[in-house]
Amino acid sequence: MNDPVSREVEDLRSACEALRGELARVIVGQREALDLVITALLAGGHVLLEGVPGLGKTLLVRTLAQTLDLRFSRIQFTPDLMPADILGTNLVVQDDAGRRRFEFQPGPIFAQIVLADEVNRATPKTQSALLEAMQEHAVTVAGESRRLEEPFFVLATQNPIEMEGTYPLPEAQLDRFLLKLRVPFPGLEDLQAIIDRTTGPDEPAVRRVADGAAVRRLQLLVRQVPVAGHVREYAARLVLATHPESDGACALARRFVRHGASPRGMQALILAGKVRALALGRFNVAIEDVRALALPALRHRIILNFEGEAEGVDADDVLRAAMQEVEAPDLPAGPREAR
């Protein structure tokens, strides 16, 4: 274990454990959501959290920011929110000499962890302000492009039931999220634990376990995880199976899907798979990683057609069907019984 890569991997594992532990001190349950948020963070992607109000989405993001020594900002999306409110704007300022000049006043996007709360309440125009920031980690204001500080991690939340006065995220915007997590309602034991933890005299405190540089280093480390050819092929075939016009499309996709997952979905599968593999003590991405991450990585990239919407088909159903139908790639020259 004197190998620097080994040490970094060990650091990553311990960071993951520490992060999970700190988050778990505040967040009750939601184990999968916590793991996937950490996964997205280390993969360098963004997360869309979907759930009814009161499940701790905002708390989760805020706690994450506290455990990492990163600059955090929260944007509450409302219908009257303008792009400049997010990105920032040039203001006219007067210096001591009485000269006036434009000075860029950065918006809340200029942080390292950005909570876009109730992102679907803003207009598409405002939502689109996030596009460049999420993809390029840069914003352009008044013709001037400004880099965002790394690591840059956006966590957006949205409420799936209050659709009145909301603006569903456009496909291009959705595609920028690495994972879309559905925050489930807690069970009985978790609810009791929430009561204990939030109504007592002591508020749980978290400690910082990593800083931005460490996160950035771990993000670079994750990308070194090797992926076997057949795993890549499986991920590609899984994505193709969601495309109704594809030869390998699953039956449900042919019937209910208008647009399948994008290549970004495939990238998300592999990147998140790399983090998962390392977190589980492996140094390679396996097909089981791809399968485990297929729902959060692809569910928001599948656009159902009218029939699918009318039938109440969920993207998760399509993905499960695709995983059932898509088999592991044939063995190159060996027994087919291995499938």
Binding site: P226, V227, A228, H230, V231, A277, L280, R282, N284, V285, A286, I287, E288, D289, A328, L331, P332, A333, G334, P335, A338, R339
Partner: peptide, 20 residues
């Protein structure tokens, strides 16, 4: 490679051998 993939699948080795 086929033997490695077979072994991975059979023993649940999460594609370790085939990747190697």
């Amino acid at each position: 490679l086929a033997a490695a993939r077979w072994t991975d699948r059979r023993l649940g080795l999460a594609d370790r051998l085939s990747t190697a």
